[in-house]
Structure formats: structure tokens, C-alpha cells
């Protein structure tokens, strides 16, 4: 957490924000960061017909594969919280690799934070996002598993990588919520997922009488597509840009 200075909230200068997240500088990371959204979308496409037929159980069944994909993605491509890729790249060199084995290092440095992120996503982000879904008009008296699982999917897509790279620092998360961070592929993924889920509500009221209009298929669809688009744009075109409100 040393890199983040807790800015004085009342000071006139805007508080400093974390730099955009750079994916790890190795070939596996560079390759997998592009394969990952394809895999995520494939997961969605593969389960689409059963999602339409039985949303709740399909969402439950795809939860684990999605979590694994996301964990794999963050472990392979992203720097865990507390370190930037450049530091990480310079330091290990030859000195460090001797003491802890590579596997152990990977486990401690990546898999454990990834699972911690998963835990936080499940315990904090999922209820919060479910509550937001309800605020936006999700049914309150019925479809509880549907809404909760939809919230879980949105949380896995949007929040898990973000927790992995930013940890749990309060000020950072204020900036996350305030849309003050510069855009990168992780933050872009979050924004894309949320905007996609928001747009996903549009076709619900139409009188097309399609099976896929049922709750929450369109929201999940929007979230998945939004995630892929947001991650792509965030990592390329919009990288480093900031969202201006005024």
C-alpha cells in the first residue's frame, strides 16, 4: 500500500490516483489477456440456450467456470495488489528465485490474492450489486435466486479483477466508485460490465414474446458483452483516460 498516499480529502488539489494497471510484462500474460474475453464469451455462448431455458440453475452452474476463468486471468495477466509489474519484474531477477520456489511464489503472490478477491467478491460485491439490481427494478417478491445469481455474475466479471489489483484500500475504492481512476483494462471491464447490464434492461419490456426476454437473461448478456467490450477498449483505445463529470 505504500504507493498510495491517503490524500487529504479537504485539500484543494485533487487526490492522486493510482496509475492505470499494466498487464504483466510476459508473453503468457500478453497472450492470455486477449484469449480470456474470448473464453468468457464462449462460456456465455455455450450456456446460452440452457440459460434461456432455465436461468437460475444455469447461472449457478456457470458460476464456478466463470470464477475459474477470472482467477486464471488475474493470476496470469495482472499484477496483484501492492506491487506494480515493473517492480515485480525488476526485483525477482536471480536473487529472489532461489529462496522460494517458483510454484510457491506464484501461489503466495497470485493464487492466494486471487482467491481472496473471489471471497471479497462473493461476500461484499455480490450482495451490493444484487441490491442495486433490486433498486433498478428487479423483482422483490419473486425470482430471488435469479437476481442473486445475476448479481454474482456481474460481481465476478466486474469486481474480482479490480479487488485483485487494487486490494481493499478505502481511498482507492472511493476513487473506484467515484470513477476517478484512469481507465485500464480492469477498470474498463468494470465500467463495461455495468453499462452492459444497464443496457441489458432495454429489451425486457418489448412485446416480442421471446423466451430470452425473461429475467435476468438480458442483464447477464449485457454484462458479458459489456465486459468484453469494456476490457478491450479499456486496455487499448481508452487506456489512461479519465472520466470527467463536469
Amino acid at each position: 500500500m505504500a504507493t498510495i498516499i491517503n490524500a487529504n480529502a479537504t485539500s484543494k488539489t485533487p487526490p492522486s490516483t493510482a496509475p492505470p494497471v499494466e498487464p504483466l510484462n510476459n508473453d503468457a500474460a500478453r497472450l492470455y489477456t486477449h484469449i480470456h474475453p474470448v473464453l468468457v464469451l464462449s462460456l456465455y455462448a455455450f450456456s446460452f440456450s440452457s440459460l434461456v431455458a432455465d436461468p437460475a440453475s444455469t447461472l449457478l452452474n456457470t458460476l464456478a467456470p466463470l470464477a475459474i476463468l477470472q482467477i486464471a486471468y488475474v493470476a496470469v495477466c495482472l499484477p496483484p495488489t501492492g506491487g506494480t509489474p515493473t517492480i515485480r519484474k525488476q526485483k525477482p531477477g536471480e536473487k529472489r528465485s532461489r529462496v522460494p520456489s517458483k510454484l510457491e511464489n506464484g501461489l503466495n503472490g497470485k493464487i492466494v490474492p486471487a482467491f481472496l478477491s473471489l471471497l471479497l467478491t462473493a461476500l461484499a460485491a455480490t450482495p451490493l450489486l444484487t441490491a442495486i439490481l433490486v433498486l433498478f427494478g428487479a423483482p422483490v417478491t419473486t425470482h430471488h435466486p435469479h437476481t442473486l445469481l445475476c448479481g454474482a455474475h456481474v460481481a465476478l466479471l466486474s469486481t474480482l479483477p479490480l479487488v485483485y489489483v487494487h486490494g481493499v484500500n478505502g481511498e482507492t475504492w472511493r476513487q473506484v466508485v467515484a470513477l476517478l481512476l484512469p481507465i485500464d483494462e480492469v477498470y474498463g471491464g468494470l465500467i463495461g460490465t455495468v453499462v452492459g447490464a444497464w443496457l441489458g434492461a432495454v429489451p425486457i419490456p418489448l412485446d416480442w414474446d421471446r423466451e430470452w426476454q425473461k429475467w435476468p437473461v438480458t442483464i447477464v448478456t449485457g454484462a458479458y458483452i459489456g465486459y468484453a467490450v469494456g476490457k478491450l477498449l479499456g486496455g487499448t483505445l481508452l487506456k489512461g483516460k479519465k472520466i470527467m463529470f463536469d
Binding site: 485539500s11 484543494k12 442495486i132 433498486l135 433498478f136 427494478g137 466508485v177 467515484a178 444497464w198 463529470f245
Partner: peptide, 17 residues
């Protein structure tokens, strides 16, 4: 609700506590 969420976001951006 969209406005409410944006207002939360905007409020988080405010400098004065």
C-alpha cells in the same frame, strides 16, 4: 435509479468531506 447512482458517484468525487 440511474440518476441516483450517478449522484452517488458524483458525491464520492466531491472534495469536501
Amino acid at each position: 435509479t440511474t440518476f441516483g447512482v450517478l449522484a452517488v458517484i458524483s458525491s464520492f468525487r466531491q472534495k469536501h468531506v
